[in-house]
Design a protein around this nucleic acid. Sequence first.
DNA 1: GCGACAG
DNA 2: ATCTTGTCGC
Length: 225
Amino acid sequence: MHNWEISPKQAVQEQKGLQEKLRIQSFQQEVKLVGGADISYNRFSSTAYAGIVILRFPEMEIIEKQTAVATMHFPYVPGLLSFREIPPIAEAWKKIKTRPDVMVLDGHGMAHPRRMGIASHFGIVFQIPTIGCAKKVLTGSFDMPENQKGDTSPLMDKEEQIGTVLRTKPNVKPVFISPGHLMDFKSAIDIIKPCIKGYRIPEPTRQAHLLVNEARIKNTKGHTS
DNA sequence: GCGACAG
DNA sequence: ATCTTGTCGC
């Protein structure tokens, strides 16, 4: 794992160097376990509560959850999210005993200016298939998908597809799915769809978010941090 | 120069 | 990301 204590400019260079390691390819493995990761923190604070949840696929039954507290050393800069969030998530990852077949990250995968969103970066660092599931677009254009659950439309950057806009629930804003690493567009969608259980956000990321938010509130009660 | 801009 | 009450719509 490379050095994370760098400047934004160096981070951009780091992303360019990582491009050659990125593998957007057909995913064949049978999925039995899927993981979700996310972090939570108080405004103006650099203390992050990271968490990872492992769920049985496609039941979405949680079989393991781990959290960790860490200090963030990188600011939030659109396009450089991984440098801020991966370090804390890595701490939680160390505690995970059950290796999932695929990890879902809260953010984009290759749907990024340099094709190096947090899902792609995480996949390369930990050598595991990943999928990016973001709530908002970072780059690219798209036509709004139809209003039925499961409807999709391609997310495009010029003439190249970089992700898929997915309607997870009627009358609710869609989410943006993109391959992270060792993954392809179709598999990403085929894996995410069964993870939808009545909410806008697919279970892996949703459960991870609930976990870290709970950890933050619990550890922030009655003291500073 | 202007608008956009994951979490 | 987090803060924060009520309110509109399926």
